[in-house]
Amino acid sequence: MKKKFKSNLAKFAMITPISLWMYIMVALPFLYIILISFMHPGTYGGVELGVTLDNYKELLNPLYLVTFGRSIVMSTAVTCVCLLLAYPFCYFVAKKNDIQKKILMSCIMITFCVSMIIRLFMWINLLRSEGAVNHFFINIGWIQVPLKLVYSNMGAMIGLIYMLLPFMILPLFNSIEKIDYTILEAACDLGAKPFQSFINITIPLTKPGIFAGSVMVFIPSMGLYFVTDLMGGSKTLVIGNLIKNQFITARNWPLGAAMSVILMLITYLLLKAYQMAGGSMDDLSGM
């Protein structure tokens, strides 16, 4: 009897803190955000009780629809560029020996740890009209007038790609490294051209990495408002900017909450699709 009690006590002590924290700090705020999205905005920010669908109707405003569309196009483009940049890199690194692999992947890990905001700021310095990149291209005579590389869509793209590229590289590398090269050799022996075996064997085998990397780039790219704030032009570029503006500047919380709900839905649908395609949630933690 006493032993049973002690065992229960141990169980209680181990699962209560984490369960409570997750329910109170994750489940509760998200439920509350959904609730807010059906309420009226207060005069000075905050919310007033009541049930309305006005906030969702407001979202149909072309202004917001355009931004949502633009954000999704932007995220798709960023994801594609990251995939195209990362795939050859991971493929080449995977063919190196263990020591070189370790060193090169440590180089990627280090960039994760250096302050995001400082790296971003240095890109702005490099890319602006009088910055080093434009200076270089003018000096070698490729261009006459400085390119508008920052404070434009292009700038926002560069910023997002730079920030999110490591998130593509890590899962991709993990799955490319696991390829069993004997299969490729077999294909070669059976007469497959390198290109054929790449399309028919390598890509299908590395699908888990491609999917996991794409999800890990696409989803955050919709919310990284500070990157587009700093490097994008005057136009609102991603959904994250819209949400931040509603909560901080315009102080229309219910509208911002409705936008957040839409962003949550997009995330949820993407993850469902990812799971249906056979993706594992654990691959998304970056480890």
Binding site: P29, Y32, I33, G223, L224, I243, L284
Partner: peptide, 20 residues
Amino acid sequence: LLYVPIVIPEIVLGVALLSL
């Protein structure tokens, strides 16, 4: 719930916590 903070865009968690 443990996966939510990992996968959701950070801004959603941010505004949710702010509201709470």
